[in-house]
Amino acid sequence: MQGADPAVVRQALDTREPLPGTDGFAGELDGALVRDVLGRYPLFSEADDHTEWSVDPTDLNSPEPVPAGHQRGADGDTRVWTLPNPDPYANDNRAIDAVRSAVIESVDEVGGSPAIAFSGGIDSSILAARLDGPLYVGGFEDSHDVEAARSAAEALDRAVRVVEFSHDDLERAVPEIVRATGRSNPMDVQISLPLYLVAERVAADGHEHLAVGQGADELFGGYAKVSRAPEEERMEAETIRGAIREMIASLPAQLERDVLTLRAAGVEPVAPLLHDRVVETALRLPGDLLVRSGPTDDGDGEVRKVALRQAADFLPDEIRRRDKKAVQYGSLVAREFDRLARQAGFKRRMDDHVGQYIDSLVE
């Protein structure tokens, strides 16, 4: 069993407790396969033989993921856990205190001194402020992420190691990512590339673990589309709290991709902001502690991740106010990958030109 003591998982099965105080888990227990409610650890079995299983899909001929929150046995998949839907905090101060306590406790209990994936935003800065491991940022020269990481590291009185990407790096890494994740669509590949290349350097420097800020955007309202519910066409939810639950439901697929990518590069991810206690606290936040109108550095008149920003009062104000770009854009990987595709003859007028380019690299 990865991620938790089997006794804890067995009790969670007996009580149907979805958040039993772990960082997630996956594996075999009493003859069945189980995966936690957020799918924080990947788990697969053969499509036609569930007794053959692995945490690495490349070990199997026809890997079929175990759905998050399910138990897979001889009779198929059974949902065991569903995310709770608690009432929101009635008092804002109590809510902020709860977020602060959950975040600090979860980060501070991380063992050792893992390297830290550092983009200079609030999520990775929380890790950098409380963990001792070296900071790493990746991107092309003059990318937003590299600039933001350097300025945030200076504000935290930390040094940051820059992993500068090249076109050769992208082309070399794509087949490895596709093989490890089983995904070749442009979005997944472009998100995975910065993670893989940074993790590769981290592993080369002798580190076995990489602390990441995954989950904070989904839990605390970091996406612009969350604030536009119910008008946002990409969301089914009619409220901000409902949109948060919808975003959390997307985590299992994202985490499977990210964990497999990082493992393929040679490191094991550590994601303290996805601990059960953080998830449980985030689910109780009212809408105005997720997204709120107000002045921001980029001038869009909207503050996202309100509760997390207020709770992280141990960070400099300039970091707490920052918004960040998605990793594929902040690192300039998406821009440069599109450029490579066009240089290889896959023009934008072609259908899915970047996808065709990826296929050519894999072939």
Rank of each mutant, 00 (worst) to 15 (best):
P42V: 02
L43C: 08
F44Y: 12
S45I: 07
E46V: 04
D48K: 09
D48I: 07
D49W: 05
T51S: 14
E52L: 15
S54V: 09
T58I: 13
T58S: 13
D59A: 15
D59N: 13
L60C: 04
L60Q: 03
L60V: 06
N61C: 11
N61M: 14
N61Q: 13
S62L: 13
S62F: 10
P63A: 12
V66P: 00
P67M: 10
G69P: 06
R72C: 01
G73N: 08
A74F: 09
D75M: 12
G76A: 09
T78R: 15
W81I: 06
L83N: 06
P84A: 10
N85Y: 12
N85L: 13
P86T: 06
D87G: 04
Y89K: 05
N91C: 10
N93T: 12
I96A: 01
D97N: 11
A98E: 00
V99L: 10
R100P: 05
R100Y: 09
S101G: 10
A102H: 08
A102R: 07
A102D: 10
I104Q: 13
E105G: 13
S106T: 06
D108N: 15
E109Y: 13
V110W: 00
G111H: 10
G111D: 15
P114Q: 07
P114R: 03
A115N: 02
A115D: 01
A115K: 00
I116E: 00
I116L: 06
A117K: 01
S119Y: 01
G121C: 07
G121M: 02
D123S: 06
S125P: 01
